[in-house]
Design a protein around this nucleic acid. Structure first.
Length: 878
RNA sequence: GCCCGCGUGGUGAAAUGGUAGACACUGGGGACUUAAAAUCCCUUGGCCGCAAGGCCGUGCCGGUUCAAGUCCGGCCGCGGGCACCA
């Protein structure tokens, strides 16, 4: 009997696929097309289990669709710009370009052994000038089409390093390198006008039926459409040329409880006051401390400054409200000014109590004290409230749902005007960094901002840059900035900002349709391959990447680079879970945690109790031990028992990373692929366990052995089980096909286990066994393509398994003639009967009541009602 | 702080509102073996019972229904995102 040796068979079949050009995508008008895409990786240098899971999922879909007769496009590329390359250059020297391309080569070498059905001829990296040059062309077209603008935006500023920081580089409000307190600072930057598309991007979500509901919901909340009212609060004395303070609110019903106003530190009135008064300036300075992330702003301590200004309440003109500057007010949303209702908003109440501001209750709940202490009164939706003489005895939800009534009421009295607003802000694309796509514009003293001529593209990144100082090396480059104005020819300066890396990933899917073209896309290729039929990636991209891509596809359509049909670029989306692993932790002499890599740990169970020990040097494999040696080890190692912390995201710092290369070396790629597809549903996290990996390997060995055994059966062997085997085969085809098509790979694999169990116990003729085995190979091939080829060949399959058609289940074999029906009494299962599958309900009823167990349980009680669900269940109500 | 999701045996999980735990891991028992590994067979939600069988059980509390893991309301716990990480 031969041994299953993946290190021999896997390279052999990969060569065979290459030679056959099995995965080269071809435009074939005779076939329907299928474009499957996994979110391309950042070239960190090492693949991890998350990549294996992501790309195996896509590969299962791609191989299955190819077998179903589609012309499949399944490409791969590299999201290659970004901060880590610059960080590496700063920390270890070297050049971001060399580091990135080196990583790409390393990662590609690690991905190849996975046996993915990828068309590598379409590979590109976003840092290839051929790619980012076309991106610059898109930028110029979008600029001409009015899709891009320049305006001030707030960034994280490190006052010591004198550089802009990413949110990730702000830790507890301090710069990650300098440790200096970060400030929010305004900078003039480039923006995509995505907010012009708020309504379009929102309403088109309804058409994305094959996207997860939660992703659509997250996007809808992100776009944040709200209907509210804009109210003018007349200033008692005009300031900065303004007679009133304009506020936006989605809760006009709480206007009656407004007791003070708050404006953003960047509000024009705050600026005007700051210019005249150093104390206001000092407060605004203070209010700008901390990072720009919404989380940082929302969770920072609420600070306020009383400007001394007052406004008149629009409903109660004799009431004056103080105007404060608050660090929690966002200039980007609404009008940068809010009215505060401490009676009904906890944040406002905390602020009011801190600064001794008045609190008013607008709701007046019947039967309550209506006194507000330290908790704001936020009535339940169905609570009955009385706002004032105009709105009494209504429920809060009436007020919410009929908010228009309230807006109408206020509009009719000239108190404000109804308005729809979106939370979505324009997409700031400028980055003050080197390793990104240069923004192809030139600053000319006479002509202003001028786009570069397309014939001068790509505006290529200079190689000779240094990373010894913080900030953007392009700013310091002696010659790169100098250029001629594309319009007047006079000496001018290049823009040194580069593009956000989200721009790179917002159109790469379109580029794959013709990656070598000298225009961003080519019409007939885009028309044939777009849209992406199935997009697969992590849930962490649910909002930004996917929203930006949806915007970009529209922008590309507007500028003539994509057909109308492709404005929603992803027909179906699947968001997969993470691969997690246990963490092994001990403590050093000072009691600080020390983490251990899985390969440094011996982990096994005593009974059902998992235990882990640090591997002794002389001992690497537990299987080498007999029981008494094991005992000895336990005693010896008792001092170094390690704590097991269950299932956490794989991370270098926790040392719980499992390197796929080690798994492939020990078990082969098919085992790794089989494992990541089995057990957990793909949208959920899956925990990597060594026992699970071993079990996957054992199973593949079992299939190998079964194949061997059937191969040695005499050709004329007869068996009684041919019909049963045919039924089991049909069932397996049905389960696996449904599992793959429904993204329930774990269920497809459960079906394959069951089919293998049946097959190994079957007593059927040689021909039937071989046929079943070929079907098993084909059904396994999306998950374990190498082993499948080997089995396919051994059982006399024609050509490559990878190119064989998907089997079809005979529907006649899928239905049983009799069904077993459980019988319940009042919903509790008491008996069961076996009946022909199409027996009428009335007869089923009779049989059920005549059943011996039923007679016993009913004990003569009168039957009130019988519910017969055909083919399902019988429930007797007494 | 705001938005979204998840919660079922020792573990990963399955279950168009219709027999909760398919399939697999781990554990327990057995066969084979001088022994071990590998392989194969039985068993494996909890409690009571010699057994037949019974009762309980899908994070917690309540509701809808002939019937709830599934639908609705409220709570608790965990995870993801929050616009310059990719």
């Amino acid at each position: 009997m031969s041994r299953y040796d993946p290190s021999v068979i896997e390279p052999k079949w990969r060569d065979a696929w290459d030679k056959a050009g099995a995965f080269t995508a071809k435009r074939d008008p005779a076939k329907p097309k299928y474009y499957v895409l996994e979110m391309f990786p950042y070239p960190s240098g090492r693949i991890h289990m998350g990549h294996v899971r992501n790309y195996t999922m896509g590969d299962v879909v791609a191989r299955h669709k190819a077998a179903c007769g589609y012309s499949v496009l399944h490409p791969m590329g590299w999201d290659a710009f970004g901060m880590p390359a610059e960080n590496a250059a700063m920390e270890r020297g070297g050049h971001p370009k060399d580091w990135t391309y080196g990583n790409i080569a390393d990662m590609k070498a690690q991905m190849k052994p996975l046996g993915l059905s990828i068309d590598w001829s379409r590979e590109f990296a976003t840092c290839d000038p051929e790619y980012y040059g076309q991106q610059q062309a898109l930028f110029i077209d979008m600029l001409a089409a009015g899709l891009i603008t320049r305006k001030a935006a707030v960034v994280n500023w490190d006052p010591v390093d004198m550089t802009v920081l990413a949110n990730e580089q702000v830790i507890d409000g301090k710069g990650w390198r300098s440790g200096a307190a970060v400030e929010r600072r305004e900078l003039v930057q480039w923006f995509f006008k995505i907010s012009d598309y708020s309504e379009v991007l929102l309403s088109a979500l309804d058409g994305l039926g094959n996207w997860p509901e939660k992703v659509r919901l997250m996007q809808a909340n992100w776009i944040g459409k709200s209907r509210g009212i804009e109210v003018d609060f007349p200033l008692t004395a005009p300031v900065a040329g303004q007679a009133a303070l304009t506020c936006y609110s989605t809760r006009p019903d709480t206007l009656r409880a407004a007791t003070f106003m708050a404006i953003a530190p960047e509000h024009p009135i705050a600026r005007a006051l700051a210019e005249a008064d150093p104390k206001v300036a000092a407060f605004c300075e203070e209010a700008r401390r901390g990072g720009t992330s919404e989380e940082a702003i929302e969770t920072a301590e609420k600070l306020g400054y009383d400007t001394g200004l007052t406004v008149r309440h629009p409903i109660y003109p004799d009431k004056a409200l103080a105007v404060w500057i608050g660090n929690f007010v966002l200039m980007e949303y609404g009008t940068g000014a809010i009215y505060c209702c401490p009676g009904h908003d906890q944040r406002d109440l905390d602020f009011a109590r801190k600064y001794g501001l008045p609190v008013v209750n607008a709701f007046h709940m019947p039967g309550e004290t209506n006194v507000i202490g330290t908790e704001a009164l936020v009535p339940a939706r169905d609570a009955t409230v009385a706002y004032d003489q105009h709105f009494t005895g209504i429920t809060l939800s009436t007020a919410y749902d009929a908010i228009e009534t309230s807006i109408d009421w206020m509009e009719a009295r000239g108190l404000g005007k109804g308005q729809v607003k979106y939370r979505l802000r324009d997409w700031g694309l400028s980055r003050q960094r080197y390793w990104g796509c240069p923004i192809p514009v030139v600053h000319c003293a006479t002509c202003g901002v001028v786009p570069e001529k397309k014939e001068n593209l790509p505006v290529e990144l200079p190689y000779d840059v240094s990373f010894d100082k913080p900030g953007n090396p392009l700013d310091r480059h002696p010659t790169w900035r100098d250029c001629a104005c594309p319009k007047c020819g006079a000496p001018a300066k290049r823009e040194t900002d580069t593009m956000d890396t989200f721009v790179d990933s917002s159109w790469y899917y379109a580029r794959f349709t013709n990656p070598r073209a000298t225009t961003p896309t080519v019409a007939e290729d885009a028309a044939y391959w777009m849209n992406v039929d199935q997009y697969i990636g992590g849930i962490e991209h649910a909002i930004l990447h996917l929203l930006y891509s949806r915007f970009f596809a529209r922008a590309m359509h507007k500028t003539g680079h994509l057909p109308q049909r492709a404005v929603e670029p992803f027909n179906a989306l699947f968001t997969q879970g993470m691969v997690t692993h246990e963490i092994y932790r001990s403590k050093d002499a000072q009691g600080r945690p020390v983490y251990h890599l899985p390969e440094e740990v011996l982990r096994f169970n005593i009974g059902n109790e998992p235990v882990a020990f640090l591997k002794a040097d002389h001992l690497t494999d537990l299987s080498e031990l007999n029981e008494s040696q094991l005992q000895e080890l336990l005693i010896e190692a008792a001092g170094t028992e390690i704590e097991i912390i269950p299932s956490a995201k794989m991370s270098k710092s926790k040392k719980n990373v499992v390197d796929p290369m080690n798994i492939i070396a020990s078990f082969g790629a098919d085992t790794a692929r089989w494992f990541v597809m089995s057990d957990s549903p793909p949208e959920r996290d899956v925990e990597w366990t060594s026992s699970g990996a071993e079990a996957a390997f054992k199973h593949l060995n079992r299939v190998w052995g079964l194949c061997d055994r059937i191969g040695q059966m005499p050709a004329d062997h007869k068996g009684e089980g041919d019909q049963d085997l045919a039924k089991a085969t049909a069932k397996a085809i049905d389960e696996v096909t449904k599992g793959i098509e429904g993204f329930a790979f774990n269920k497809a694999i459960a079906g394959l286990y069951a089919f293998t169990n049946t097959l190994s116990r079957a007593n059927a003729s040689t021909g039937a066994m071989r046929e079943a085995m070929r079907t098993l190979a084909k059904l396994m091939s999306p998950m374990t393509p190498h082993l499948a080829e080997e089995v396919w060949q051994a059982q006399g399959g024609n050509g490559l398994c990878a190119q064989a058609p998907w089997p079809k289940a005979d529907p006649a074999l899928l239905v049983d003639d009799t069904v077993v029906l459980p019988i319940q009494i009042n919903g509790k299962r008491r008996a069961e009967i076996s009946v022909p599958k199409d027996m009428p309900a009335s007869e089923v009823e009779k049989l059920a009541l005549a059943n011996e167990d039923m007679i016993k349980f009913l004990a003569g009680q009168p039957v009130k009602k019988i519910i017969v669900v055909p083919g399902r269940i019988i429930n007797v109500v007494v």
